[in-house]
Design a protein around this nucleic acid. Sequence first.
DNA 1: CTCCAGGCTTTAG
DNA 2: CTAAAGCATGGA
Length: 273
Amino acid sequence: MKIDYDARYFSPKDVLECGQIFRFEEFERGYKVFSADRACYVYTEGKKTFIECDDGDYFYNFFDLGRDYAAINESAKAFGVPLLARGAKLGAGIRLLNQDAEEMIFSFIVSQNNNIPRIKRIIGRMCEKLGQEREFMGQIYHTFPKACDIAARDAAFFKALGAGYRDAYLVATADRIAKEGIERLYGLPTPQLKRELTTYTGVGPKVADCISLFGFGRRESFPVDTWIEKIYREDFGGTLKDRNKINAYFCGLFGENAGYMQQYLFYAKREGM
DNA sequence: CTCCAGGCTTTAG
DNA sequence: CTAAAGCATGGA
């Protein structure tokens, strides 16, 4: 099936290349995007962005199409922060994705102290080796592995995939999720969710915020990484060193939509604005 | 060569 | 409790 949406607030490039997702590739006029065990093709033509897929309901929610991004974008410009206003103006096509929670847990464990191209390669190899083969638009792709499939391998396996020292984190967390599942997490209030997420090996405050934001739809989450730390110093004149305190500062400033503001800021800084 | 990347765990004080 | 060392890998 095919979905269309106003391209002004849905730019595939902005959505995919702002570091919230690691499984996509350029294809024809746009990108193929992979989530859990599904795939879609997304591209912009004229004033519309189109999604072609087999499961419209899933990708409607995945791309957050039920939300009013015009209002969010306008509110970003009202904070009087130049970098944020520029990010909102030039990154108006950004949307926050509603991704698979388990996939987010493993993906952001891989992301720690790592760069985005390498993160993508490691996750790509995990899917290739441990995911199931599927077909989409005449090409083979691989699903994201389930926790039990990750848990079935040892640390050396993930080291060989290039995961580095994060190998043991993947195995330990997969063992636990394979045994316990993550169902109990969905209903928790956001502060408790974050606290629970940090009890998984390899998940600290920043990774927990990313999982909360991209995997559990908690838009009040505000991940603080090296980029945000730099923004905090250079664009907000901040002096705090502790990332937890920097996180509290931004959450207090931006409130329930902090996650969107984080993406606009991240986008702007990475674009060198 | 050094520095850095969407940081976390472990150890020392 | 806070601070710093150690950690794999690859690109700039």
